[in-house]
């Protein structure tokens, strides 16, 4: 069963900032070795949910378990390496593509070999000739691809992807979808993927969360998107999915 031994488990998680409730009683799982898609209108709290898993934020109360161990028992640095996140903004450090790609290793005092750098770019669908380019000269879509490649450098066993295909054309989006599904298949990496594209959520996901106003409205097999139970979810999904 999916619920057995989840990679991430949230138990009644609350998170607020400046008196504003951003997440309310969030309970649910990211099944181990599967792809979970997370959908919902913007401002629903999806990004915040991911930042909690990566340890960039901590819940006010409630618990998060990573591989059945409370998130608080992890060393923050180790947690962040094994729960990798590709942030929504695809932030870059100034300099070349190679510098950005090498960043996760540089932070550990290691270097990234030229070959490995080329391989990673190739995997993310960028040409190896990009290595010496300045990130300033990359398009939004190219930065998203680089951001994914950079997150993969740490070889995380849980991979959180925050709207990574939002600036991509449909060909590139297809490439990234293929890349993520093959990472999941080949390495058994658990993947959680926030997307605005409900079609993508349905086809790529094994499991799906629908969030609204900081609450989890529905979770379950991704096919739930075809027949939502909740009235508001139905409204949200209608028109956006065939």
């Amino acid at each position: 069963m999916m619920t057995a031994n989840p990679a991430v488990r949230f138990e009644s998680v609350n998170f607020s900032r400046e008196e504003m409730h951003i997440l309310r009683h969030v309970t649910g799982i990211f099944p181990k070795g599967r792809i979970t898609t997370v959908v919902g209108p913007s401002g629903a709290g999806k990004t915040t949910l991911f930042k909690l898993c990566n340890g960039l934020e901590s819940p006010d109360d409630g618990e998060i378990y990573i591989h059945d161990t409370s998130i608080h028992s992890y060393n923050p640095v180790e947690l962040r390496r094994s729960v990798g996140i590709a942030l929504q903004k695809a932030t870059m450090v100034s300099g070349t593509v190679e510098k950005n790609l090498a960043l996760p290793l540089q932070l550990q005092g290691k270097t990234l070999s030229h070959e490995r750098a080329g391989e990673l770019l190739d995997v993310a669908g960028l040409d190896a000739s990009f290595l010496k380019r300045d990130v300033k000269d990359l398009s939004g879509g190219q930065q998203q691809k680089l951001s994914i490649a950079r997150t993969l450098v740490n070889q995380p066993d849980i991979l959180l992807l925050d709207e990574i295909t939002s600036s991509l054309d449909s060909v590139s989006r297809q490439d990234i979808e293929n890349l993520i599904t093959s990472i999941n298949r080949d390495y058994g990496t658990t993947i959680a993927w926030i997307t605005h594209n409900l079609q993508q959520a349905l086809t790529i996901g094994d499991y799906t969360w629908v969030m609204m106003d900081g609450e989890v409205m529905e979770t379950g097999e991704s096919s739930l998107l075809k027949e939502p139970q909740n009235e508001r979810v139905k409204q949200f999904v209608e028109g956006e999915i065939d």
Binding site: R80, T91, V93, L103, P104, L107, R150
Partner: peptide, 16 residues
Amino acid sequence: QDKTELILSLGGTPKQ
């Protein structure tokens, strides 16, 4: 702030 968050998210220390 975004850059600080990025480095932390990749497993960097506050100093880094």
